[in-house]
Amino acid sequence: MTFLRPTGNWDGTRLAHEGFIFSTDSEVVERVVPFVLEGFARGEPVLVVAGERVRSLLARHLGTDLGRLATFAAAETWWRGGHDTLLAYDRDLRDLRARAPSWRLAAEPVWLAREDGREWSRFEAVANRCLDAMPYYSLCLHDAQRLPTAVLTAVARSHPLTWAGAAPAPQPAYEDPIGFLRAVQPPWTGRPGGAVVDVVTAPVQARRAMSAALPGDRRARLGDVVLATHEIVVNALRGSAFAELATWTDGEAFVVEVTDAGPGLPDETLGYVPPDPVDGPRGMWLAWSLADDAAVRTGPAGTAVRLYFRR
């Protein structure tokens, strides 16, 4: 669980993650401008990655102080899919940590307004865990005029802090990252009767099975399917003598399910967490980045992972 540190009392040692939902220009100015100026006063690098509306307001109200920002960038150019966007953030933050004791970021994920950008809510939730040790204040801006209600609800569930009048306060709707991920992943229904099922004891068997099972009209995804399945099977066989591999088609999605009888996953967020660049586990991260969606059921009796590949 992320510690809750409002601006002003923040000690600059770990992540403070605040979601700010705004509707009017004055709300943006009254929250973001003091946030930026406080960073300047504390000698912290201040980064702003936002949409055109927010950038225009800041340019108008900061005047010559705009040049003091360490970054002032258009958020529209940053989206490259959930995994690649978070990976870019992670690399930039690691670089900052090597150069500054603490910093702050005002970021507006404008891509949440797009259907293909909605997955970012999962990465915002996971940031509470994977970035917790980073010494920075993250002010996440969300425009209520542009974002649908479901996205705004996810903002409350994925940010430990929210702006409440005159100061940040604990967000009562906030959920633990694992609980949030379980709630938003594809619903887990029973395996259909027509599923093709194989038992594999080596990754090479899984690769062959995937090559044979993928329908002809989906062969363009063969590389993604084979590599993602390989990574999950490798993980499964680390804790189990065999893995069960099932495949079926569900509407537009080709579904791959890998089931094992191992001890369960140590952390269900791994598929969304950028791996350590030196020696971090990266199998789930790679599989999740190749698939269009994923779902997990895990416990002491074993783990089942489903990967979804659309046309």
Rank of each mutant, 00 (worst) to 15 (best):
L62D: 00
G262K: 03
P160R: 09
F40R: 15
P148K: 12
T249L: 14
F20A: 02
A228H: 14
L47W: 12
G193R: 06
R219G: 08
A98P: 03
R218D: 06
C140F: 12
A107M: 07
W103V: 00
P186H: 10
L47C: 06
Q185H: 04
Y308T: 13
G251S: 13
A50N: 04
G179P: 06
F309Q: 00
A304E: 14
A166Y: 13
E119T: 08
Q171H: 09
A156V: 07
V200L: 07
Y308H: 10
A291D: 01
L147Y: 14
V32T: 15
A294G: 05
R99T: 12
P263F: 11
E119F: 04
T71E: 12
L237D: 11
S56G: 12
V29Y: 15
V256F: 05
A41P: 13
F3C: 14
A212T: 11
D267Q: 04
G67N: 07
V126R: 15
P160H: 05
R14L: 11
P187T: 05
G302D: 01
R68K: 15
F72Q: 04
P172I: 02
A113R: 13
D11G: 06
S121H: 14
R122H: 12
A261N: 08
A213T: 06
T303Q: 02
P192E: 00
E268C: 09
P215F: 10
Y89G: 01
G39M: 09
A287V: 03
E27A: 14
V196G: 02
E231Q: 08
R104A: 03
G194M: 03
R99A: 13
F180Q: 00
V155F: 07
V151Y: 05
V199M: 02
L161N: 11
R31S: 15
V46K: 03
D293T: 10
D279W: 01
S102T: 13
E119M: 06
G251D: 01
A73H: 10
Y89Q: 01
V305Q: 07
W288P: 02
F309H: 03
A133L: 06
V199C: 10
E108L: 02
G82A: 14
L286Q: 05
L181P: 14
A295V: 00
H142P: 01
T269G: 07
V233D: 06
D279A: 11
L147D: 06
R297V: 14
G299D: 02
G194K: 01
F35T: 02
A150V: 08
L152C: 01
A195F: 02
A113L: 07
W103I: 04
P277W: 11
T2C: 12
R238A: 09
R60D: 08
S26Q: 12
T64M: 10
V204R: 13
S121C: 12
L93C: 05
F180W: 07
L265D: 03
G223M: 11
S26I: 10
A287Y: 00
Y272W: 11
S158Y: 03
T298F: 09
P186F: 12
R191W: 02
A164H: 05
P186L: 00
P177D: 00
R91D: 06
H83R: 14
P274V: 02
F180Y: 13
V110T: 10
G179N: 08
D250K: 09
W111G: 11
E115V: 14
I232Q: 09
D90S: 11
G239L: 15
V278N: 08
